[in-house]
Simulated scan of single mutants.
Amino acid sequence: MTQARTRLFAATVIASAYAFAAPASAQDCQSRGDLDQLYCDRNGDLVADAPTDAKDWKDPDTLVFTYTPVEDPAVYANIFKPFQEELGKCTGKKVLYFQVQSNAAEIEAMRSGRLHVAGFSTGPTGFAVNLAGAVPFAVKGDESGFQGYQLWMLVKADSPYKTLGDLKGKKIAHTSPSSNSGNLAPRALFPELGLVPEKDYQVLYSGKHDQSVMGVVSGDYDAAPVASDVYTRMVHRGQVDGNKIRVIYKSETFPTSSFAHAHNLKPELAQKLVQCFTSYRFPEEMKKAFEGADRFVPVTYKDAWAVVRKVADGSGTPFNAATYAKQKQ
């Protein structure tokens, strides 16, 4: 996400808080934690509760679905086509795939009610939960559990850089402000390893993980922290020659993209969506695209995203509107 889009999203989120009156149930809320004023969390699971008044439930004839734009959105529109068709059969509704160009656009689409179910990148999941009322319920995986990924620091294979310390004063591409592996995790993890973003190197936002990777290959950037699964998929698809890239750092494992529904869907529809996702088994082309994952594994935001929230808090960028307001300045 470019800085201009980040500023626009910050302004949009803040304006939305005033443009949309909070439901009475949210206004009367005694427990919302980090959630925006539009939402309430009475049961302490860290995600927005469904509205208490049935008239506020949404049961659309057409479900709008999308997946995080970590790469070219058209790539994922094709990958998810078999699932999109099955989701329509399972729910008995028309399913429309909505291509989004940025994490901010995806989050705002759910906040405004234009997006009903979506895959959010690891970092943006926190913003989607707190600012858009998203309720994560699954992550790609297999019978052994949900799929994870690591933050990898990439450099050109023929570069002289061997450690993070070698990158001081160099040009390093982060992906977007809300990205976990592309921005938040480096800010939280690198300082204790002797490399402080903004101090030891200038942060240059590329916008997306694939653009960071290609920027390293082309020499536009000396290095880039990216999600290991995105990079691996690019190599397998032949988008980049893995022999031209070297990995000089690997982090602990984070959960990969979440799948979440809007908090205000009719409860029966929300339950049906979860069932449709978790009972689905990926066809071969989806398994290949997602590194062997063959299903959607049930998870909760409270448990699966604990390490991600820790990184966000540790990097001084908690998942709230104030973070975007700071980035506007």
Score class of each variant (00 low, 15 high):
1 M>H: 03
1 M>K: 13
2 T>W: 04
6 T>L: 07
9 F>S: 09
9 F>P: 01
15 A>H: 11
18 Y>E: 11
20 F>R: 15
21 A>Y: 00
22 A>V: 11
24 A>V: 09
25 S>Q: 13
27 Q>W: 01
28 D>C: 14
31 S>L: 06
33 G>H: 08
35 L>A: 02
40 C>R: 14
41 D>E: 02
41 D>L: 08
45 D>K: 00
46 L>W: 10
47 V>A: 03
52 T>N: 14
56 D>Y: 13
57 W>V: 10
58 K>Q: 14
60 P>H: 10
61 D>V: 10
63 L>N: 07
66 T>E: 01
69 P>Q: 03
75 V>T: 10
75 V>P: 03
76 Y>P: 04
77 A>H: 06
81 K>L: 11
81 K>V: 01
83 F>Y: 02
84 Q>K: 12
86 E>Y: 15
87 L>C: 10
88 G>I: 05
91 T>G: 06
96 L>D: 15
107 I>F: 03
108 E>W: 04
116 H>M: 13
117 V>C: 05
122 T>G: 06
125 T>M: 15
126 G>N: 09
127 F>P: 01
131 L>T: 10
132 A>S: 04
136 P>R: 02
139 V>H: 00
155 V>A: 09
156 K>R: 15
161 Y>A: 03
162 K>L: 03
164 L>C: 00
168 K>A: 02
170 K>H: 02
171 K>N: 04
173 A>G: 04
173 A>C: 07
174 H>C: 03
176 S>A: 11
183 N>E: 07
187 R>T: 10
187 R>Q: 14
188 A>R: 10
195 L>P: 07
197 P>A: 01
204 L>Y: 02
207 G>E: 04
210 D>G: 01
210 D>P: 04
213 V>Y: 08
219 G>R: 04
226 V>Y: 03
227 A>R: 13
233 R>P: 09
235 V>Y: 06
235 V>K: 14
235 V>G: 05
236 H>I: 03
242 G>N: 05
245 I>S: 00
250 K>W: 06
257 S>N: 12
258 S>D: 12
258 S>H: 08
258 S>Q: 07
262 A>G: 02
263 H>W: 09
264 N>H: 12
270 A>W: 07
274 V>T: 12
275 Q>R: 13
279 S>E: 06
286 M>N: 09
290 F>Y: 12
296 F>M: 06
302 K>I: 11
307 V>R: 09
311 V>A: 07
318 P>M: 02
